[in-house]
Computed example of a mutant assay.
Amino acid sequence: MKRSIRLALLLAILPLALSFAATVQAITTLLDNDKRLQQPVSASVAYTSLAQFLRTFSQQAHVPLRIDPKEPYSGTEICAFFQQQPLGNVMKALRSLLSYQHAEWL
């Protein structure tokens, strides 16, 4: 009985999981093909708010990047030192850093 319930649940969830995976892949493809995200940016900042960090890249790459000041992450302090990295790579690294589940700031 339990096995049939698990199988039914798996069959019900599988299309949703495949749909989600396809959506993530489509978004990734769009982002990878966006020429604006290939522009090189540089940073040499210590204890700069995320909001200021995004403003810096927005000015360098001429791409609108911002965070709502009401968002708790907007005041998160960032330390970063790198030269001429593609904006897309920087944004992916930032997302990875801020989405780390065991981070102190969560």
Results as ranks from 00 to 15, higher is better:
Ile13Cys: 12
Gln39Thr: 13
Pro69Gly: 02
Lys70Asn: 14
Leu9Pro: 01
Leu14Tyr: 12
Phe82Gln: 00
Ile5Arg: 12
Ile78Ser: 05
Pro72Gly: 10
Val24Ile: 13
Tyr73Arg: 13
Lys92Arg: 15
Cys79Ser: 15
Lys92Asn: 12
Leu18His: 11
Leu97Asp: 07
Gln52Arg: 13
Ser4Ile: 13
Ser74Arg: 02
Ile78Phe: 03
Leu54Asp: 00
Ala17Met: 10
Ala46Asp: 07
Gly88Asp: 07
Leu37Arg: 04
Ser99Ala: 13
Leu98Thr: 09
Thr48Leu: 13
Pro69His: 02
Pro69Ser: 07
Ala43Met: 04
Val24Gly: 01
Lys35Trp: 06
Leu18Lys: 03
Leu16Phe: 09
Val90Met: 01
Arg66Asn: 09
His62Thr: 02
Ile5Tyr: 07
Ala26His: 14
Phe53Lys: 00
Ala22Asp: 05
Tyr47His: 15
Ser49Asp: 10
Leu9Ser: 09
Cys79Glu: 12
Asp34Pro: 04
Ser42Arg: 05
Val90Gln: 01
Leu98Ala: 07
Ala43His: 01
Asp68Thr: 04
Asn89Ile: 06
Asp34Lys: 06
Gln60Trp: 04
Arg55Ser: 10
Asp68Ala: 11
Leu37Met: 04
Pro86Phe: 08
Ser99Tyr: 08
Phe57Ile: 00
Ala51Asn: 09
Ala61Phe: 02
Leu16Pro: 03
Lys70Ser: 10
Leu50Phe: 06
Glu77Met: 15
Leu65Glu: 05
Phe20Asn: 02
Phe57Val: 02
Pro15Glu: 08
Val24Arg: 07
Gln60Ile: 00
Gly88Ile: 09
Cys79Ile: 14
Gln59Val: 08
Thr76Glu: 14
Val41Phe: 09
Gln38Ser: 08
Gly88Gln: 07
Leu65Gln: 03
Val45His: 03
Arg95Ile: 09
Leu10His: 15
Ser44Gln: 15
Lys35Leu: 14
Asn33Phe: 05
Asp68Ile: 09
Gly75Pro: 02
Ser44Asp: 13
Tyr47Asn: 15
Pro69Cys: 10
Ile27Ser: 06
Ile67Glu: 08
Ser42Thr: 12
Leu37Ser: 03
Ile67Gln: 08
Ala8Phe: 05
Phe57Lys: 01
Leu16Ser: 12
Glu77Tyr: 13
Phe81Lys: 05
Ser99Glu: 12
Leu87Phe: 00
Lys70Met: 04
Gln39Ile: 08
Tyr47Leu: 10
Ala26Ile: 02
Leu10Ser: 14
Ala8Val: 06
Ala51Lys: 11
Gln84Pro: 03
Leu65Lys: 03
Leu7Met: 11
Cys79Gly: 09
Ser4Pro: 00
Leu94His: 11
Leu97Lys: 06
Leu65Ser: 06
Ile27Cys: 06
